[in-house]
Design a binder for these strands. Sequence first.
DNA 1: AATTATTTTTAGGTTTGTCTAAAATAATAT
DNA 2: ATATTATTTTAGACAAACCTAAAAATAATT
Lengths: 219, 219
Amino acid sequence: MNYSISEENYLKAIYLLQSDGNLVTTNALALELETSASSVTDMLKKLKQKKLLHYQPYRGFKLSMDGRKVALDIVRRHRLWEYFLSEKLKFKWDEVHELAEELEHVNNKKLTDRLDEYLGHPKFDPHGDPIPDSFGKMVKTPLIKLSQLTENKTAEVYNVGNQSTEILHLLKHHKIQIGTRLEVKRIFPFDHSMEIKVKSLSPITISEQLAENIYVKIL
Amino acid sequence: MNYSISEENYLKAIYLLQSDGNLVTTNALALELETSASSVTDMLKKLKQKKLLHYQPYRGFKLSMDGRKVALDIVRRHRLWEYFLSEKLKFKWDEVHELAEELEHVNNKKLTDRLDEYLGHPKFDPHGDPIPDSFGKMVKTPLIKLSQLTENKTAEVYNVGNQSTEILHLLKHHKIQIGTRLEVKRIFPFDHSMEIKVKSLSPITISEQLAENIYVKIL
DNA sequence: AATTATTTTTAGGTTTGTCTAAAATAATAT
DNA sequence: ATATTATTTTAGACAAACCTAAAAATAATT
Ligand SMILES: [Mn+2]
Ligand SMILES: [Mn+2]
Ligand SMILES: [Mn+2]
Ligand SMILES: [Mn+2]
């Protein structure tokens, strides 16, 4: 019923990695959590024993129903705190993740629900990710990657598929954030880089790698 | 520069126990932290090595200047979160301590300062304890124990010298809280119990033990 | 001052979460 | 099909924070 900070970090990371339902690998999780593969294996055994995980040695793993429920609650707390930090304490959207990474581990249902209420039951965190409600339900928006757009399409930025400070700094430099409207001007076949126009600024060119990590809604 | 949750809990407990500057004993700290005396000794060695403590084996201990500084910062975070929970999330004053006990360990100067600012730089937490500012400074009010009052004196409750849920529940039952005005009607020499009148309610009798733990300002 | 009681420390273990290096298994290439 | 490479697990260790039981130091009594 109550999990350690480490267990919680593992559960959340597995949830995020498996998003589309496929199995997660030991190495992928080790990379995500910046730890060794052997540490991951140790934890997998423990989480399996607690029935939070479906895990066959060497074959990969994914969360059980129970594990998913726990993970969704951690994600809920994480994103609510991010919203609080951004909305109430005026932190920039690239500063909130690191702090929420700690606040998420204060596990108290009444606190979470009161915070949710105080914030007005927000549906999205500052990065555009949906916030699960107390039943684990959340809205899903039909988002596509910026890299999937064709020339002359206009779209609004809704989400970023990667929370590293590196990408957030790059986005800041390009003056791209959640809610930004942009127009695809050209796509260069050689490296699939894109020329885009953000608001009334002069056009900029972004890499395919970056476009792969920006989720938008077509306007 | 960065301490574990356990180290922080020890530092804060030592700070609170030594309040008036005298040495703290191993057993007193073990009692406060609900742990064994041998565990306390282990931690004392570590904190001494980190120069946060003045400690002579068998003789007792107290915080060094550095240790006091760290402890004050933890106390600051604890009391700011208590204020937040009480003021913004509408928690009752007997519910906030337990939650703040966890939130206090999220150690980030910018977060603490932003929270302080967001709350309007409050001077007292919901239990009437002063909140240190970012330099560790706090106001000190000239409070006396309710048990020190004489008959027919009127006073206002400012603080409770004990954060146990037991005392908070008893106070709730007697309808006594921070800010309550009360009048001492009679003091019974046999057991030093006190008859007091709270607002316009009919008089009640409280034990000496309780009166020892209620701090008031004479009106 | 000697004995007894209390307090504190030490000795030796346990659990959790981590690590490196070696062994086992699976995937890929020849 | 075998050999090579990559991935994953196991083996064995370590640090942090806790424990109980025994020993040592201090304090209180007689
Ligand atoms: Mn975390
Ligand atoms: Mn987020
Ligand atoms: Mn605490
Ligand atoms: Mn308090």
